[in-house]
């Protein structure tokens, strides 16, 4: 009985503290959440928002400036409507940003749990293994992996997942380490909890807020990187509409029709800022520190 009480205490305490201090999600984070919702809706309902084709253009309408009739944001070198491509591009751009974080989130958290709860030898071998990845400038490693695997969105996702695992694992390990000697862990161990029960029932719920906050902010970074890989020619292949691809495509008209570049360039900025602001607000809300390093 007593063990039970101790074992459930931390979660209750966290809830009590957050309600007690009247923490609220700050306004900028609410706006960011709304922006993200709009972007996701656009991604899902792209065909309803525009009647034009994202991949086949009208050759007579090449390089129209923003504001031309029927082409709010202008057209590209193949006469494709930029607004249409932007809306359709939301789906792959957001997905290739979010999927790596989800994959790396699962694997990284697992690494962190194993390292954090394991014996010293296991702990240090996992951490040294992660250190190796920290020795690489992350973007370069992603490029090397993606380049080796060849272009394509799934390869970009694999490359990004690899570089996102170590930082997430570190956060998860650090949070787990903080709990390792907590009273309720001792109690659970003393009452004969198995390793998996300890990890999933005791530790995971307690480290989840920190990991989720960190991952939310990482989505912004991941969107920037995935669009960046496409920009470098390593992500999704043309003629698919994708933001990074649009930038590299429109870049050739930078000195003749520079205004065409603004929409896709800002789309990535908006998505990235929105996730970072949301992550920051969530961090304050759940009272966990998060820092992208």
């Amino acid at each position: 009985m007593a063990t039970m009480d101790v074992a459930v205490a931390p979660r209750l305490r966290r809830r009590a503290r957050t309600s007690g201090t009247r923490r609220r999600l700050p306004l900028p984070s609410k706006i960011a959440a709304a922006v993200i919702a709009l972007l996701l809706l656009a991604a899902v309902f792209a065909p309803l928002l525009t009647s034009q084709s994202p991949t086949v253009g009208v050759l007579g309408d090449r390089l129209l400036a923003p504001g031309s009739s029927g082409h709010l944001l202008g057209t590209d070198g193949q006469g494709r409507d930029i607004f249409t491509r932007l809306v359709y591009g939301a789906r792959p751009s957001l997905l290739t940003g979010m999927i790596p974080v989800a994959v790396a989130g699962l694997i990284g958290t697992a690494f962190g749990l194993i390292a954090g709860l394991g014996k010293p030898l296991l702990h240090s071998s996992v951490m040294r293994f992660l250190d190796v990845f920290y020795a690489f400038p992350a973007v370069l490693l992603a490029i090397a992996i993606a380049a080796a695997l060849g272009s394509g969105s799934s390869n970009a996702i694999i490359a990004l997942s690899v570089i996102l695992i170590p930082p997430i694992a570190r956060v998860s390990e650090a949070e787990t380490g903080r709990l390792r000697n907590a009273d309720f862990m001792e109690a659970a161990r003393a009452s004969g909890s198995s390793w998996s029960a300890l990890a999933f029932r005791q530790v995971l719920p307690n480290i989840a807020p920190a990991v989720v906050v960190y991952c939310t902010a990482l989505i912004g970074l991941s969107i920037v990187y995935s669009a960046g890989l496409s920009y470098l020619g390593l992500g999704i292949a043309p003629p698919t509409a994708e933001w990074g691809l649009m930038i590299s495509d429109l870049q050739q008209y930078m000195f003749t029709t520079p205004s065409l570049l603004i929409a896709p360039a800002l789309a990535i900025v908006v998505a990235s800022v929105a996730f970072n602001v949301l992550g920051d607000g969530l961090g304050n809300y759940l009272n966990v520190r998060s820092e992208i390093a």
């Binding site: 920037v224 960046g228 000195f255 603004i262 360039a265 800002l266 970072n276």
Partner: peptide, 25 residues
Amino acid sequence: NAIALISISLPQYSVGLLLIIYIAT
């Protein structure tokens, strides 16, 4: 804080191109 948070989120290729368009040219 706001400036720091936004600058963290900026993609370098977007910023670079915008700087070329508006500052350089």
